[in-house]
Design a protein around this nucleic acid. Sequence first.
DNA 1: AATCCTTTTTACCAATTGTCAAATATTTTC
DNA 2: GAAAATATTTGACAATTGGTAAAAAGGATT
Lengths: 190, 190
Amino acid sequence: MNNLLISYLQLFRFIGVEDQQLIITLFESRIYKEGSCLFHSGSVCRERFFICKGVLKIAVQNEKGNEVTHFFLKENQFCTILNSFNKEVPAEESIQAACDTEVLAISKSKLLALYEKLPYLKDLIEQITQQALLDKIQIRNAYLGHDSATRYRLFMMRQPEIALRVPLSDVASYLGITPQSLSRIRKNIR
Amino acid sequence: MNNLLISYLQLFRFIGVEDQQLIITLFESRIYKEGSCLFHSGSVCRERFFICKGVLKIAVQNEKGNEVTHFFLKENQFCTILNSFNKEVPAEESIQAACDTEVLAISKSKLLALYEKLPYLKDLIEQITQQALLDKIQIRNAYLGHDSATRYRLFMMRQPEIALRVPLSDVASYLGITPQSLSRIRKNIR
DNA sequence: AATCCTTTTTACCAATTGTCAAATATTTTC
DNA sequence: GAAAATATTTGACAATTGGTAAAAAGGATT
């Protein structure tokens, strides 16, 4: 399972066997059941996750107590609450498993130690992070100015692997509609 | 006017007088009228702008020919189509003046030359850029799961300097509603 | 297999928003 | 400053969506 992270990093840059071993020892393998929490909002997020299998969602509770899904992340993506992780301020968002999920977790302190030993990793992960932020913005922008049915179609087209694996209620909240409305939309598309 | 950029950078880091001069000579001062285009979608965006006065909007034309505003940027913010600028791929978005605006512009080649001479600027601007991306995501997330009237109130609370300076139609498109609806919402709030 | 629990679907009605059209304000141009 | 062009407001109606409640369908547990 650790190989997945190494393979992913190798897509960008050669990594020697010794460096691979070092990386592998610092990440901790974990399994989360659908619906369980990797991180609760309110405290500082001091971990970073690499998703080996499954889907994570970043979400908040709004004032009515409803959950709003900000984003989904899947295999071969890193996940953290970046603003909290960087500045060590309390996070407003939580991280939950949107389906059964396997991750590799690393603490901030271990990651910084890793950056000390392998400086190229810092640049690499920062580059990956910046691209992930750009992708996030681009994906969200794609929904702007479209009605709910179109947003759902765009989601199905662009992220079918996610759409088919997570509960309808999560998809609805991600697209900014009620589960009932999404159910109707799916019915009409059939 | 160049002082605004220097003053802004000095907020993060001391910059010597010689370095200041170098920076100033590489940026070009420009003025844009409300509605005019700093950059058209379709080509590669090879410039970066620093806003000294006014508001820029990043927008696309959708299939119906309507303009959708993705984002507003104001004084003391950098603006470019980052994905296009970085990877040199055609941009899907345009950059327009949402009100009369003064910017400092620098080409990618000049910016890279500047990074060569002042390596600390590269780190600084990348740090500023990452934070800007995080802010963009955070601002957009704040609107998720709220109805149009609430989105407008949030916009007025969080970005009044922008709300009061740009056309209502731009605000409407930014908030994902029609100008007519926004006009009614404003009427009801009074 | 039967029960319980959760998720999804369906139905109904109310509220919101979009569309079209016209009136009013505001800005630009000559 | 008057006319023209553009932006905003308003109204009427249609379409979409939300809220509530109930039924149906799936999954999990015993």
